[in-house]
């Protein structure tokens, strides 16, 4: 395949990655890695480098729209990010002592379970009015746009969410990708936030988490300009488009899209665990 053809095809795939990444709060890596490895026969290290950059581009492309429309909860995002950063550090230390193949299989199981939990939650309206004491103390509650104007929401189980975020950080430190799925889960299942608040707040912070590893990725030579060039352009276009779509999509549809995408991620992890190929 010529470089010109490769760049054009990868550009198109990256638009889709940016679109799905911005809508689900997962970033573009979930689509970028299997596309590069399976369809273009690119070495996994280059694919991981490109995926990391795609996550930062997705986060940047969609953030301004989500902040302006009032979906993103900056306080919740930054509070939970501390758990992810600490976890990422623990994961980076642990990586020398544990089998990443075993970890990948455990993570795959967690992802399939997350997909099930995400689809199962049907209640669009929050039933509880009062918030967890920590949420009150840290002023984590907020409001978000609905078809009938701005609506306030409560915030539950803050300690549980912080634990899930730390685990998300450990997994991303160990495996390099995939922490976005657990971030959305922490905010959806533990904090019980409106679904779009969970995905947009995840979108805001995944760029920060990815930036923590980027120095090392550059230094190891994982970031190749020829591969990242079509990825950054495509993902930027896709994520800006995705952010415009969000307010027109029903939360229920978004849950289904999210579940399909994390099942795809789960399949990748299972493949990684079984073959040891993606290490």
């Amino acid at each position: 395949m010529t470089i010109l053809l490769f760049s054009c095809l990868l550009f198109l795939v990256s638009i889709l990655a940016g679109l799905l990444g911005a809508l689900t709060g997962l970033g573009g890596g979930v689509v970028i890695i299997p596309a590069l490895v399976l369809f273009f026969d690119i070495n996994i290290r280059y694919a991981m480098g490109a995926a990391l950059i795609s996550v930062i581009a997705t986060s940047s492309g969609a953030a301004v729209a989500y902040l302006r429309e009032g979906y993103t909860n900056l306080r919740i995002g930054m509070f939970l990010e501390t758990g992810a950063v600490v976890g990422a550090f623990i994961g980076a230390v642990l990586v020398a002592f544990v089998s990443t193949r075993f970890i990948a299989i455990v993570f795959a199981v967690i992802l399939f379970l997350s997909a099930y939990l995400t689809v199962r939650r049907k209640h669009a309206q929050q039933t509880q009015v009062s918030s967890h004491p920590w949420a009150v103390r840290l002023q984590l509650t907020g409001d978000y746009p609905t078809t009938s104007g701005m609506r306030t929401y409560s915030v539950q189980h803050v300690p549980a969410a912080l634990v899930i975020m730390t685990i998300a950080g450990i997994f991303s430190g160990l495996l390099g990708i995939g922490s976005g799925a657990l971030k959305v889960l922490a905010m959806d299942q533990a904090l019980r936030l409106p679904y779009k608040v969970a995905t947009t707040t995840s979108n805001f912070i995944i760029g920060i988490t990815a930036s923590v590893s980027v120095g090392i990725y550059f230094f190891r030579g994982y970031v190749d300009p020829n591969i990242t060039f079509p990825v950054v352009l495509g993902v930027a276009i896709g994520s800006i488009g995705g952010a415009k779509l969000l307010s027109h999509i029903k939360s229920r549809s978004l849950r289904i899209i999210f579940s399909v995408v994390i099942c795809l991620l789960g399949a990748q992890m299972l493949y990684k665990g079984m073959t040891g190929a993606l290490s």
Binding site: S7, R220, G221, P225, N226
Partner: peptide, 30 residues
């Protein structure tokens, strides 16, 4: 990225890609 990428494609667009094996990057790009 667009300026660098288009320039690169004009110069090397016809070359064949080969990224199946990891070579890392030249020191200057890390």
């Amino acid at each position: 990225v667009l300026i660098g990428g288009v320039t690169y494609l004009i110069q090397h667009g016809g070359d064949t890609i080969n990224y199946a094996v990891f070579h890392g990057e030249p020191m200057a790009l890390t």
